[in-house]
Every structure is written in C-alpha cells, then in structure tokens.
Amino acid sequence: MQKLPVLLQNQQAQNYKVYLDTSDDGSDLTLYLNQSYDADPEIAKWLQNIKVRRALSLGIDRDELNEIFWLGIGQPRTVVPADSTKYSPGAKYATLWAIHDVEQANALLDEAGLTRKDGAGYRLRTDGKGRLTFEIASYAGSFLPFGQMSEAVRAQWRAIGINATVTEGERSMVITRLRDNDVQIFAFVGDGTDHLFNFPQVIPVSPSSYGGPLWGRWYRSKGQQGVEPDPVMKEILEKYTAAFIASDEDRIGLGKEIFAALVDNVYVIGGVGLSPAYGGVRVVKNTMGNVPARQYNGSDAKTSAPSRLMSVFFK
C-alpha cells in the first residue's frame, strides 16, 4: 500500500495497470486485547477492564493512521464489516468507542482507578511497580507494517498517559507466544470479520485465538480445559454456537448481535478498514488478457486463486 504512489505514477511508462480491490474486512489494523493473559496479574486486570479497553480505543487517532499508512483511502472504524454485509449490526457500531476523544479516554482511565502518574505523565501500576506498560506484539515482515502502526498507536497513547512497548518477531515464534498465552496485545488484520462464521479470529473459538487463547481452549474443549470466559463473552460464544443450527434469518440476527457486543465491550480494537491495503493492491501487465476488473478480496481467500488464473493469458 505504501508503494501505491510510485506504482500509479509509473503505470503508463511501464505498461501496466493498478487495480484496487477493496475488502469488506472492518479493520486492516486490529488490536487483539488478550482477555486470558495471566503472566502479570496487574496487566491482566486492566486488559479485562471494560473502561480501560474503551479508553485505549478512544485514545487512537485513526484519521492520522489512515493518512500515514492507508494514504487516506481507508475508513477509520471498528472491526464490524461493511454495512453492505449481512452481519453488519449497523452504522452506529462502525464508530462506537472508535472516535478520537482524549478527554473521554482520560476520564475513563481515572474512573477505572488509574489516577496516579509519574513525572512524565504516564499512569502508574496500582501494585507499586512503576509505569503501567502494555506490550503490543506483531509479526515481522507481514503483509502490512503492523510494527510501525503499533509505534504510531504507542505515540498516540501518550496523550492518555498509557505507556507501551512494541515488539516484532518471526511468525512461528510469535504464534508460539500467542498459543502459550504470553502476548498481551496483538496487532494484526481483522481476520474473518467479513465472513464471521467461516473464519472468526475476533472471537476466541480455538486455542490459537489472538484475543484469548485460554478462553478458546475452554470453548473448544467444552469447558474441560482453559479458562471460562466472562459472562458477556460466554453469551457471544453461545450465540456463535447456536448460529450453526439456526435458520438463515436467525443466524443473521445472531451475527449482528455478536458484532454489537464485541464492539461495545471492545474485546478487539479496530483501526482502519474497508480498503485494498491487505491483499488488494494488484498490478497487472497490459499484455495480459482475461484479467478480472475486480478480484475477490476476502479473509477466506487472500490470494488470486478465485480469479481462476489458469484462464489468464498473454495477448
């Protein structure tokens, strides 16, 4: 995406065309707040606090992120998919707790009990162990510069007194950390938001869940392993399970209710979405024929396979 200006500038000279295939994913940048994290009880306490989660979301300037990383063509929003998709709960939820409001974010953090600060204005842990510092982890060398995006979020959170560290790691190593419940906040794309019942990474339904691996283990084992989710997430998971044997009409209603609860409780924080940034910037030589004008760009097919490349030919 960040190479788009150069790609567009050289289309005529280099005899190719740039196609932008927009995704219905609600958020190309999603912060998964690990609700089952337990290595540091103080961090776990605040990740599980709804006022803190809402404050962290309100402390993000999505318009700034959109200009820097999406070149202004994305849409600042939550993780809910496009309004045109069947499971979208409505326009209200596209921005709920996702506007930039430093004053409200600070008020929520104060109400939560994070009132003490150090000389630099950062909020202090309540156990006397210094600054409250969250880690934002991501894959190194991923499809989008999630590490750089996380650094931008870290800088924005200074205005609400929240400190953060940003780490990037080789993919398999980070996956191991995720499955070991060792990651506090994970920055990645909002996988599965466009097709909730195909690929729901925004819901902890497996031990590899980004936002609560122990909750996912509990769900997968039917309560025999892992950690039981909080009441709101339990209800979300019950609706998710019920949807698979529901009528089409009831399943759509359940999907909307799931998204509404996810957004209102800010289990995951959306950033900028409904863009071609993740898998939708396509460069095609003009000597090629039978090229689709619009290629499907969904979380369950982030490749060119749905365009039947075996039917593309050189003129």
Rank of each mutant, 00 (worst) to 15 (best):
residue 15 N to K: 12
residue 16 Y to H: 13
residue 17 K to Q: 14
residue 19 Y to I: 05
residue 20 L to D: 02
residue 26 G to F: 12
residue 27 S to V: 07
residue 27 S to L: 10
residue 33 L to V: 14
residue 36 S to M: 05
residue 37 Y to A: 02
residue 39 A to C: 03
residue 43 I to Y: 14
residue 44 A to C: 08
residue 45 K to L: 03
residue 46 W to L: 12
residue 51 K to S: 07
residue 52 V to Y: 02
residue 54 R to S: 14
residue 59 G to Q: 00
residue 61 D to Y: 10
residue 62 R to N: 01
residue 71 L to I: 10
residue 73 I to H: 05
residue 73 I to N: 11
residue 74 G to Y: 04
residue 80 V to S: 07
residue 80 V to R: 06
residue 87 Y to M: 05
residue 89 P to N: 07
residue 92 K to W: 10
residue 100 H to A: 13
residue 102 V to R: 12
residue 104 Q to W: 08
residue 104 Q to N: 13
residue 105 A to G: 06
residue 109 L to A: 01
residue 111 E to W: 03
residue 116 R to N: 08
residue 120 A to C: 00
residue 120 A to M: 11
residue 120 A to E: 15
residue 123 R to H: 11
residue 124 L to H: 07
residue 124 L to Y: 12
residue 125 R to K: 13
residue 130 G to I: 09
residue 132 L to K: 05
residue 135 E to K: 09
residue 136 I to Q: 00
residue 139 Y to E: 10
residue 143 F to Q: 15
residue 145 P to D: 12
residue 150 S to I: 12
residue 153 V to A: 05
residue 156 Q to V: 05
residue 161 G to L: 09
residue 161 G to E: 10
residue 162 I to C: 03
residue 163 N to I: 01
residue 170 E to T: 13
residue 172 S to Y: 12
residue 175 I to V: 10
residue 175 I to Y: 04
residue 183 V to E: 03
residue 184 Q to V: 12
residue 184 Q to F: 01
residue 188 F to G: 09
residue 188 F to V: 07
residue 192 G to Q: 05
residue 194 D to I: 13
residue 195 H to E: 15
residue 196 L to M: 14
residue 196 L to Y: 08
residue 200 P to Y: 06
residue 202 V to I: 15
residue 213 P to S: 13
residue 217 R to Y: 08
residue 220 R to F: 12
residue 220 R to K: 15
residue 223 G to W: 03
residue 231 P to D: 03
residue 231 P to N: 09
residue 234 K to S: 08
residue 236 I to S: 00
residue 240 Y to M: 09
residue 240 Y to H: 10
residue 243 A to Y: 06
residue 247 S to R: 11
residue 249 E to I: 07
residue 249 E to C: 00
residue 254 L to S: 04
residue 257 E to F: 01
residue 262 L to C: 04
residue 263 V to S: 05
residue 265 N to Q: 15
residue 265 N to K: 13
residue 266 V to G: 01
residue 268 V to M: 00
residue 268 V to I: 04
residue 268 V to T: 05
residue 269 I to A: 09
residue 270 G to A: 06
residue 271 G to S: 03
residue 272 V to K: 04
residue 273 G to T: 06
residue 274 L to H: 14
residue 274 L to M: 11
residue 277 A to C: 11
residue 280 G to N: 04
residue 283 V to R: 01
residue 283 V to M: 08
residue 289 G to Q: 07
residue 289 G to I: 15
residue 293 A to S: 06
residue 296 Y to W: 15
residue 299 S to W: 14
residue 302 K to W: 06
residue 305 A to N: 08
residue 310 M to S: 05
residue 310 M to H: 06
residue 312 V to G: 01
